[in-house]
Nucleic acid binder design. Structure first.
Lengths: 185, 185
DNA sequence: CGCACCATGTAATGCGTTACATGATTTT
DNA sequence: AAAATCATGTAACGCATTACATGGTGCG
């Protein structure tokens, strides 16, 4: 799946593995993320499959860069993936919710500390989508005017992140009240 | 991480791998899931670590059952995990959102078909949390009255699932309108 | 002086899925 | 007659993380 994310970015313009990591961190990280090590190995695989091609660029005063560009075959693979309908829901893994599920016998203060910390984290994340991600999208759209159409959908995915964090904060607040008002066992 | 989910369930009462799969499917599946094959191998690992102990029960007219029970060491491991504060956000992977991010050059009808199908799937899932999961929790609480305290938190996690699906449907509807009203490229 | 940034990769390990393998009973 | 339920497991593979390994530049 990371393959397609990388192809998607390279379909905008050529980039290095390092660039791709930064692009993801500034845009898709809340719904798709990867480590640098995985990006580098996946690029190698994609090159083996003929979906991308790389050229080594020497730089003075900086390490060499290996710049990847998408090929016709890569564009085709990307299109095919995009057009293929998703007939299932993405499976989720939410550690906090799992923990809460089993926390009835845990002392109340520990549970509340847990929930309040997460509320703060999600609140901060919500502000980040509203401010940081918003700014990054606008900047990228300004630097690459040919991607204006794309930016509309980037904004839609940003909105998903924002709404998700709003929901999380709301739910945590509900749940904190619930735990506070539970009679002692 | 699956380890702790299994310990959590076995902390209620002893179960087989098959039972554990069903328990998960009826309760945690929207925030934590696993395949039977993984459950069986993880139980074996847990037994090797002394966190659970199993006994083979012969049955007439049915295959033998290997029933797992949590040990003191297992209870300790579970408690420690539960009490340990989560200082990070759970990373998400949302295939649909990733696809949408890169879909600007895809023809509009394909995108809309994709989004509408997902809206229906999430809507159905929302109803399932409201009806199916709700019922399952109530039934389990009725069958095991000693788990009444636990059921309060189960309900809180069910509520998370419901709110999440509501959000998803809302976002998809927003996004469908957005795509419908986009001027052609 | 230390940290962050730029820049690339490999190796070992862990987690999770898919496929393989079996087989009786109960429900539709 | 076919499908679902009960019931257990192994093997191969793929995806992802962590740790290892290197090294120069620029900023506070």
């Amino acid at each position: 799946m990371l393959k397609f994310a990388l192809l998607g970015f390279l379909n905008y313009y050529p980039m290095t593995g390092y660039d791709l990591k930064q692009a993801m961190d500034r845009s898709t990280t809340h719904f798709w993320h990867a480590r640098l090590s995985q990006i580098y190995t996946t690029l190698k695989t994609l090159e083996g499959e003929g979906c991308v091609a790389s050229t080594l660029e020497a730089q003075q005063e900086r390490p060499d860069r290996r710049v990847y560009a998408i090929t016709d075959r890569g564009r085709e693979a990307l299109q095919q993936w995009l057009a293929q309908t998703e007939t299932e829901l993405s499976p989720k893994k939410e550690t906090l919710v799992l923990k809460l599920f089993f926390s009835a016998r845990l002392d109340r203060q520990t549970v509340l500390t847990q929930l309040r910390l997460q509320r703060d984290l999600h609140h901060r994340q919500m502000l980040y989508y509203r401010e940081g991600v918003s700014r990054d999208i606008e900047q990228e759209a300004k630097e690459h005017p040919e991607l204006a159409q794309d930016a509309v959908l980037w904004e839609a995915t940003r909105r998903f992140g924002e709404m998700y964090e709003e929901l999380y904060v709301r739910w945590l607040e509900e749940t904190i009240h619930l735990v506070e008002e539970q009679p002692a066992s």
